[in-house]
Amino acid sequence: MEPQNVREIRALIVRHKRWDKMFAIVGLIAMLVGVMTLFALFLDLAIDGLPRLSWDFFTSFPSRRAGQAGILSAWVGTTLVMLVTALTAVPLGIAAGIYLEEYAPRNWVTDLIEINVSNLAGVPSIVYGLLALGLFVYALDFGQSILSAGLTLALLILPVVIVATREAIRAVPGVIREAAYALGATKWQTVADHVLPYSTGGILTGVIIGLARAIGETAPVITIGALTFIAFLPPAPLKAEAPFLSFDWLFAPFTVMPIQMFNWLSRPEAAFLTNAAAAGVVIIVMTLAMNAFAIWLRYRYRKRIKW
């Protein structure tokens, strides 16, 4: 044994262990930088915006005077657009997910559909806006309306809903299906009465995450021509006289929350920037609450269902 060599090897080990510790610290710092920067940004936004939030802010129309401006038309617009989006994307996405997971044969048509679903998820959102401008606004003549915006965002979140549905359905074990078939159920009876109820949690999670994303989308809605200054509400969906329901609101001009914020951000006066911060706080709270609810929902369903 040469003590010289042993000492060298020991030094080598110490040096490499030091590298280990250093990287652990660097990694921790990188993570803290990423997460803490974002929290600093949110804190900055909250400090600017929170004092501006009041009941009047939610019940006032936008105004030329920053102090009186509010987000009434914006949140009403967002709610109605989301209604159209959900009513379109949820049935379409779930049906597509069921087909791909339960029915689709192994052939090139299925491959084509699957490639398209994953590619659509990567298309920039503003391109959906251009599609909607050409298709919904002009070719189908829906105009620059709530209907056009709702359908646009529905197309945008369709891949999210499809992927979530497929994952949820895939998690249902085959024995459930075999038991249903053994009792003489048809394929659709098996899917509708057994597979779907078990995958509700996962599908719901995907739907909520998709809608939260749609709420925050600005670019495609601007592209189809949403207005930035709207001082009236769309016609009410409920009427006092028969037939009690009205669909005029579908074709009304509108604005949504992120566009209202964008409009205030593009003005030079500081008072409008404060309004933008307040609108930003509302948007963040809405989307974070929806996402947190979805993550919690998934956690709960994972824990409760044991096959």
């Binding site: 989308e217 951000l265 963040i284």
Partner: peptide, 15 residues
């Protein structure tokens, strides 16, 4: 991190 990925981009424009 998953939560942060859901924050609308217009808010990042403000930042």
């Amino acid at each position: 991190l998953e939560l942060l990925a859901g924050v609308p981009t217009i808010v990042f424009g403000y930042f």
